[in-house]
């Protein structure tokens, strides 16, 4: 036997074994801590990886006769197809909407019950496990895309049953000490400017000027998610999301103006581009 074949065989065998242990371990953890895989398909994907690695390693390490090889291949194909089919079927019942953050540290996860169109937002643990956090306020008729405004802000845009565009924001961090709740609206008080766009946050509400379109959102129309993002709504429909950029900083205890940028993100199902805004100064008195 060639040396490289042996090493590959052994490492694949190790991969298969450790993945199996991981799989069993995570199932125990899941039933014990009321958790699930962050994406229901992960279980089947792991199974398929295990099957393939195991088959290749056996082929490399053991010298079966021709018959033995064929049986091994057939069994492997069977395992893969069963898992593949079940994975497809499970995603028909519970559709997974998952996205990994740009820095690979967070996972935004929604599981949508396709019968009821209801979706549940999951909070991730150890990257691969998750627990249900809350149900989305409205059902998902058409899912749009998930956009990470920062490494810890994921915005999911979708259309609900009433054909209204909605935005749901998952946040995974903060811009302060993380000890206290803070209001995004208060932190971005002032005037912000970006490409063809101006945002003014004042006591009246949040004024968004985009190209020639000018609109004031009163504070009742502003819904905050975590301490990082707000969604501006109009008639039960999301219009904009404003998130605090990765470098945003504002200290409530000083009179220093905020630094860094805020990110304006329109509520549209397609062709959705973020607009970055920089601080210009205090809000003019209206």
């Amino acid at each position: 036997m060639k040396k490289w074949a042996k090493w590959i065989g052994i490492s694949l065998l190790l991969i298969a074994t450790s993945l199996s242990v991981l799989q069993i371990g995570s199932l125990i953890v899941q039933s014990y801590y009321q958790a699930e895989y962050i994406d229901n398909r992960l279980l089947y994907i792991f199974n398929m990886i295990i099957a393939v690695s195991l088959a290749i390693s056996l082929l490399l390490l053991l010298s079966f006769k021709k018959m033995g090889n064929s049986i091994l291949v057939v069994i492997t194909i069977m395992i893969i197809s069963v898992n593949g089919y079940l994975m497809y079927q499970s995603n028909q019942k519970i559709e997974n909407i998952t996205s990994i953050s740009p820095d690979m540290k967070q996972v935004f996860s929604l599981k949508k019950n396709t019968d009821k169109n209801e979706a549940v937002y999951y909070r991730s643990y150890y990257r691969i496990l998750a627990r249900p956090k809350e149900a989305l306020p409205s059902s998902i008729a058409t899912a749009g895309e998930i956009k990470w405004l920062a490494d810890d802000i994921a915005v999911f845009t979708y259309e609900d049953n009433q054909k209204h565009i909605q935005q749901f924001v998952g946040t995974y961090g903060d811009r302060n000490d993380g000890l206290s709740y803070s209001y995004v609206g208060a932190q971005i008080h002032g005037q912000w400017k970006g490409e063809n766009t101006e945002v003014t946050a004042s006591s009246e509400g949040i004024m968004v000027v985009h190209h020639d379109d000018q609109h004031l959102f009163e504070w009742e129309q502003v819904h905050q998610y975590g301490t990082l993002a707000i969604v501006l709504t109009e008639n039960n429909e999301a219009v904009w999301t404003i998130g605090l950029g990765d470098d945003f900083n504002f200290d409530q205890n000083t009179i220093d103006p905020p630094t860094g940028e805020i990110i304006l993100y329109p509520a549209k199902l397609v062709d959705n581009k973020v607009i970055r805004l920089q601080y210009q100064g205090e809000a003019p008195l209206l």
Binding site: A35, E36, Y44, N47, I50, L86, P132
Partner: peptide
């Protein structure tokens, strides 16, 4: 390992979603 694969499939199929 193959047994594990089969077991996990059965577990996943019979599992109720976490409330």
């Amino acid at each position: 390992i193959v047994l594990t694969i089969i077991l996990t499939i059965f577990y996943e199929q019979s599992r109720e979603p976490v409330p």
